[in-house]
Design a protein around this nucleic acid. Structure first.
Ligand SMILES: [Zn+2]
Ligand SMILES: [Zn+2]
Ligand SMILES: [Zn+2]
Ligand SMILES: [Zn+2]
Lengths: 137, 137
DNA sequence: TCAAAAGCTTCAGTCTCTGGAGATATCTTG
DNA sequence: CAAGATATCTCCAGAGACTGAAGCTTTTGA
């Protein structure tokens, strides 16, 4: 059996976060020692590692909750896993697109400033008036 | 003088958010009507519009707070505005880079699945084991 | 055996809002 | 001018995903 500190070291998830996941019902409440400390199985470590990796890939806890449920029923069709992955991918692509627009706009704005004072600074003027932007964002 | 609803309609910032900005000292507490309702000047509307646009460009309220301070002292050098813009740009570029790595990994993982059941689904297997990933992320 | 390390619970804070409850104010229409 | 509709007021809680501290108890290992 593993203590919560062991779990943390092996999974890379911080101790308070593990307790938080338990509270959010992402992981099962484990057994306790005689002195009320958490004692985990290796299966619980695998679960936590799975969650950690999914978080690293940017999935929400809500999405992970569904994936965890799926991973417990390996006989189920994997459609739902793909649905989750696809919609996450779409969200990522949207965020990339938005950030690229912002990057472009900000780069242009900054390059176009030849002022001495804040009052004439192109950045300040663009911020005050979206009409000076070249793109929507 | 403008009511808070007018301010909201004209700036696109929701009413509770305007009150929140006041609480966070991003905008000054306005005058009040006889019945204790907020009454704003057109200068306050300009300020709010500035904040809104900066938010749309992804700046944090902390960064905006500094920009607002700058915009009140138009005689100051604009170095600080550029420092803020540059560091924001760097953050945007980092986020783009990270999201692109995620996109690549997820696209590859999903395309490589030819399973029938969740137990064999490539997505689930990759999530369980980062060793199956091709990139760090 | 006894101190250090690790664990426990509970609460508060992060950031940027957003929404609701219940009371009051203002505006519109008859 | 009165009634009814709309807007606003304050205060509080919740979202997501944690993170940290306070103050106490348990476990570990020299
Ligand atoms: Zn400038
Ligand atoms: Zn703009
Ligand atoms: Zn699959
Ligand atoms: Zn990975």
């Amino acid at each position: 059996m593993l203590s919560i500190g062991e779990m943390s070291r092996r999974s890379g998830v911080k101790v308070p976060t593990i307790r938080y996941y338990e509270q959010m019902n992402l992981i099962d409440a484990p057994e306790r020692s005689a002195g009320n400390q958490r004692r985990y199985t290796h299966a619980a470590l695998d679960r936590l590692t799975f969650i950690r990796h999914a978080r690293d890939l940017g999935l929400s806890l809500e999405a992970i909750r569904e994936l965890v449920r799926l991973s417990e029923n390996p006989a189920m069709p994997h459609d739902e896993a793909h649905r989750i992955a696809t919609s996450h991918l779409a969200a990522i692509r949207e965020r990339i697109a938005r950030l690229k627009r912002l990057e472009k706009e900000l780069t242009r704005v900054e390059a176009n400033c030849h002022a001495d004072q804040a009052g004439d600074c192109n950045i300040m003027q663009v911020l005050a008036d979206h009409g000076r932007c070249e793109t929507e964002h």
